[in-house]
Simulated scan of single mutants.
Amino acid sequence: MISRLPLDRQLESLRVVLSRNDVLTEVLSRAVTLELPGWYVTAGCLFQTVWNVVTGRPPAHGIKDYDLFYFDGGDLSWEAEDTVIKAGRTVFAGLPAEVEIRNEARVHLWYQGKFGVPCPPYDSSEAAIDSFAATTCCLGVRVEADGQWRVYAPHGLSDVFNLVVRPNPVLAPRAVYEAKAARWREQWPELTVLAWPSTSPVPPSRSD
């Protein structure tokens, strides 16, 4: 069982599993050329690739898009982000999937309007990944200029490989978690979805 391997071997297993998704590996390869600060390919395209491989499905089954985060706190304008998004359309042209690019330094400017709760400003892409609705989602991968993979997995990899969806009640509302979990379970009925806790912890301030 992969989740019981030493961490270094889990990371290698993750790389091997993710590499079976040809779209994902192409996104990672092309993303390097954008030279974005603090970038990661993250969220569903990663853990859903693992779910697919573990359950014997095609590696790209059910993946609706590929999220690319970066962090540029020097320019919080929509115009700067849009310039990157347009560059991404050129770089990722021809792929059979949408690549959604977002500057995580700007999330606090629009998050409350979309989700109904305020979001303190992030100080890094990693901080943004930390706040996903499920700990299973808290995973980011990028390829360095020398070809080495860098993996950010603050909650480890056991739940990802064991098909466990665990709530992460630090920012996103319960309704967001439950809606996502229900949608995932329709496509991957093997999932074990854990209930939202009856009392959610108060999110730490970004200065802690």
Rank of each mutant, 00 (worst) to 15 (best):
R4I: 06
L5E: 01
P6M: 12
P6K: 14
L7I: 15
L7F: 13
E12V: 13
L14V: 09
L28I: 12
A31H: 02
V32G: 11
L34F: 10
L36T: 04
W39I: 08
A43Q: 04
A43H: 07
A43S: 11
G44D: 02
C45S: 15
L46M: 03
F47Q: 01
T49V: 05
V50C: 01
V50A: 00
T55C: 14
T55H: 13
I63Q: 00
F69P: 00
Y70M: 14
G74A: 14
S77F: 06
S77C: 09
T83N: 09
I85T: 14
R89Y: 08
T90F: 05
T90S: 13
F92Q: 03
P96T: 15
V99T: 08
E100N: 15
E100L: 15
E100R: 13
R106G: 03
R106A: 03
R106V: 12
V107Q: 01
W110G: 15
Q112P: 10
K114E: 11
K114F: 15
F115A: 05
P118F: 06
P118K: 07
C119K: 02
P120D: 05
Y122L: 03
D123C: 06
D123F: 10
E126K: 09
I129R: 00
I129Q: 00
F132G: 00
F132M: 03
A133M: 08
A134C: 12
T135L: 00
T136L: 04
V141T: 06
R142F: 03
E144N: 12
E144P: 02
E144W: 04
D146W: 07
G147E: 10
Q148R: 15
Y152M: 04
Y152R: 10
D159A: 05
F161N: 01
N162F: 02
N162E: 14
L163N: 09
V165C: 07
R166C: 06
R166G: 01
V170K: 00
L171S: 05
R174T: 01
A175Q: 15
V176Y: 07
Y177W: 14
E178Y: 03
K180A: 05
K180V: 04
E186V: 11
E186N: 02
L191Q: 09
T192R: 11
T192Y: 13
P201R: 10
P203M: 07
P203G: 04
S205M: 09
S205K: 03
R206I: 02
S207F: 13
S207Q: 11
S207N: 04
